[in-house]
Design a protein around this nucleic acid. Structure first.
Lengths: 176, 176
DNA sequence: TCTTGTTGCCGAATGTAATTCTGCAATTAT
DNA sequence: ATAATTGCAGAATTACATTCGGCAACAAGA
């Protein structure tokens, strides 16, 4: 990745900035990253090479981290989704706890503010496997308690979306 | 998507079954779906057209739901990730609550078992935007309380992984 | 205000990869 | 034993990705 560092005085968008066209491109690509550059260009109002160049820049800048196939967990046999709150004695974000990354059942590991310390999103093929993962967590020094929220059903599950909401309706109403 | 329904008497793997080769292909594609079929075939031990055909079947069967560009939330300006537990009076999974899907800040909506009813994963550009979203939630009939777990930092965040753990170490030790 | 430099676009051209097709071997069913 | 089906590899064809050159617009400097 080449670093452009002599552009700091310009007013033009640098690699760090995203303009409206970039966001439109991202909007298409988070939905379907197999879209051809012909189709992509047509949808955002660019020629294919121009779209190609912008996407290249978005990848280079890291705005697009990567392109991944999203798989159906049910077909993969991973039918049990749960969010696990992990309470720890002292600082919880230790290498020993983070080592659960090695298990493909673990999808997310966050440290959070509040009455819990770490929050994991895990997906297993059975309650037995969930139990095994929880046992593994308790085997970790510092872990004193876990609370699991087993998902009954999922209505929405999508990656980071490029759009933001410019005006929250209720806040506006509140000011009336 | 064409439906093959006259294969029910065969013992051969149907569209619903995944063999070891399929899982290897998926293992590569969840990491990088821009991998060429030449590279993909080489990594799993198939020719490019054979790899292509299997991937086509994986897409048709829904094992691969879609291919998406995963974007960097920080670059998109969405620096505040939070998990919101939503308590409701009565049944919480109502169309009114599910309607928050319209906001791109909402990435996940689950109904869960336990002391909370719904669990949302949301990502906003500011605490102010999070407040706006929470206000919108409270504006929804049936919502009586929310608890937000603001993420301080993320150590791991990846989509569904195709692998599973065949043997949980601690459970095995427990039987000794 | 003029000149220079930079950036991003488009169309054309080239290179690469995707996709299809054919033939064959293995497996399954009759 | 025979027929049908499936999945593979290699070759060929098609489609798309990528590069290049030229141009216009914009920004910076004199």
């Amino acid at each position: 990745m080449d670093q452009n560092t002599d552009d700091v005085r310009r007013k033009r968008p640098s690699d760090r900035d995203l303009d409206a066209m970039d966001r439109k491109l991202l909007g298409v690509l988070v939905e379907d990253a197999t879209t051809s550059y012909a189709e992509l260009g047509e949808r955002v109002g660019l020629s294919p090479p121009a779209a190609h160049e912008r996407v290249k820049r978005l990848r280079r800048s890291g705005a697009i981290r990567r392109v991944a196939a999203l798989v159906d967990p049910d077909i993969l046999g991973k039918t049990l989704l749960a969010f696990v709150h992990v309470d720890t004695t002292g600082w919880g974000k230790t290498p020993a706890l983070l080592a659960v990354e090695e298990y493909p059942e673990v999808e997310e590991i966050h440290s959070v503010a509040g009455d819990t310390c770490m929050l994991l999103k895990v997906r297993t093929e059975s309650t037995h496997a969930l139990e095994g993962l929880l046992a593994r967590l308790y085997d970790t020094p510092g872990v004193k308690a876990t609370r699991s929220y087993v998902v009954l059903s999922t209505y929405l599950e999508r990656p980071v979306q490029p759009g933001t909401t410019s005006e929250w309706p209720t806040l506006v109403k509140g000011h009336e």
